[in-house]
Amino acid sequence: MKTKFWPAFRWQTREYGLGVATFWAVMALLELAFLTVSMVALDRGVQIEESSFNGLGVMAWFCYFVLGLAQVRADLRLGAQFGVTRRTMLGATWLAVATTGAGLALALEVLTALGQGIMRDSGAHVLDMYQVLYLQDSWLVLSPVQHLASAVFNLCGMLGAFGAGAALSLVLWHCARVRWVVLICLALPALMGGLISLGVWLRVDPSPFFAWMLASPLNGGFFFLAAGALTGLAGWLALRRLNIRPGAI
């Protein structure tokens, strides 16, 4: 059966790739600013105890969440115009997200490694989630293997975030009126708050779960991947009977 999967994948990889490259460039500039300020300060004899530039990975997770939220509809519309089925377009997009995400994760590790190399022994640190969660000692400079693990961990986070953003966008796309969207956006956090309160009242102890997450990066990564898979499925189910409406958002 002839599908347009590979043309769609190539197109999406280029589009997402360009966006993600821009994101990386901004991160690089921010880190450069941090490094410059720190080095100037050190030069002037200022003692830096504990300053850090961190969250490269988390920022990337957020970037993919926003892409899922904001870009997926535009992708499906373009696909609708040019005869790419929903299934093919969504599938190609996921693969493009995985591919560009892998590239971004590695590129961010390069930034981290450079920063750590330059600022070694100075008190100014370049950190990321992986180090904070899983490396209690020797966390200031990572080995190549640790960098790779960090990249994989970040990639899982990106996939989970993208899935969440896309699922939210696709589920909300069923809402024909603004007031339904507003209601859902109010109801979701309320529901979450309610569930948490319920948990507290029932004395549900979340610490075993967090302990499991923190026990190994494999667990943490698996959690995000599972989140990505579940939200991906939710997004697909929402997409199946959707009226793909034209428009801007």
């Binding site: 005869g83 089925t85 793909i244």
Partner: peptide, 21 residues
């Protein structure tokens, strides 16, 4: 209609804008 095979044979242009901003 809506399957890969059908989508490959049909092309529709209408007033509605399916292009990104």
């Amino acid at each position: 209609a809506g399957s890969d095979e059908a989508q490959g044979k049909v092309f529709i242009v209408g007033e509605s804008n399916y292009f990104p901003e």
